[in-house]
Design a protein around this nucleic acid. Structure first.
Lengths: 186, 186
DNA sequence: ACCTGAACACCGTTCAAGT
DNA sequence: ACCTGAACACCGTTCAAGT
């Protein structure tokens, strides 16, 4: 990468982090380019889509969370591990406001720049979940995608100003529902 | 209301229902005006905001759901009533895709055209919840807003193509978690 | 190679002009 | 009273022209 290209790339990323942290994941890309003193074309080549930009912003944090699932799955207490990883996932999904919708879309869309990271995270989570289920710490009628759906749902709650104050309590509610046995009625 | 005004109003509403049913609550208002053969100014006077348009579309269904809560709260089985009302709420929130965000925003914003309907629905739900708690059918550490948050979260899940197939199962999971006692640990 | 910035097709809002 | 449609300030995408 040419030196000026590298410089533009870094500036864009730094400005994007600021703006998106303040305005959410649907912030204006034009505004980011403006603040980075970069033309619209430059913005577009470095980050062809909004997802590509967020992938770059989230990459390292996503990798950490994925690695954590792998480590916990190999550990001695997969039950406790799953619950604490679940909480970390809920926290992660709040990296920027509005990012939870982007991640859910990315899971469904193989062409999304975030798709691979999402499925990778899901597999790691699914393995940890399976271990927790073997130990009998978590109900058996759930899979990795269910886990994602619930983390996303709690992320959505935290994204709503009217609901975010109860985010922690409702996370507890759902986290403990994961552990309870599948009470089938009829 | 003048005859031509009334006609435009009705056309806008009919077209909006079609378009929003197909494209979601964030469909283009311009496109709706276009399909209704109406100028942009006309659109704007009849429905000053997107919320006003959705309020008109949802009004009657919202009233039905609110009335249901009142009826069930006066009934003999508030515990079962709450759970079934909770499910109805999750269904309602899917009236149109994307409407759940609008409703959550409306709860926080007193100026929203949907604000009154939302708070009205919440109060009715809160009364039903209180009755269910008196009977001991539902854990005590929840209020009407928590109920809304959970219904919204499940609506969010149903809005995501990757998650919607598990919407019913996760609704069951959460519905049964409402009934379980508050298991405090430590 | 990489960047710029104007052109394009959209959006929601506003408002002068018409009937 | 009510409607129209152009004007405005935005958006993301594309692309000819520059270095």
């Amino acid at each position: 990468m040419r030196a000026d290209a590298k410089r533009n790339y870094d500036r864009l990323l730094a400005v994007a982090d600021e703006v998106i942290a303040k305005q959410g994941a649907d912030a204006s890309l034009r505004e980011i380019a403006r603040q980075a003193d970069v033309g619209m074309g430059t913005m577009h080549r470095h980050f062809a889509t909004r997802e590509a930009l967020l992938e770059a912003l989230l990459r390292s944090r996503l990798a950490v969370l994925t690695q954590a699932a792998i480590t916990l799955a190999a550990g001695d207490h997969p039950g406790d591990g799953l619950i604490s990883w679940f909480r970390d996932g809920v926290t992660f999904v709040q990296s920027y406001s509005g990012v939870v919708d982007l991640l859910a879309d990315a899971l469904a869309d193989p062409n999304s720049a975030l798709h691979a990271s999402c499925t990778g995270l899901r597999s790691a989570g699914a393995r940890l979940l399976a271990r927790a289920q073997e130990v009998g710490a978590v109900r058996g009628d759930l899979d990795g995608t269910d886990l994602f759906a619930l983390m996303g749902a709690l992320g959505w709650i935290n994204d709503q100003p009217s609901f975010s104050p109860r985010g922690d309590r409702l996370t507890n509610l759902i986290a403990s529902a994961l552990g309870s046995p599948a009470t089938k009625r009829s």
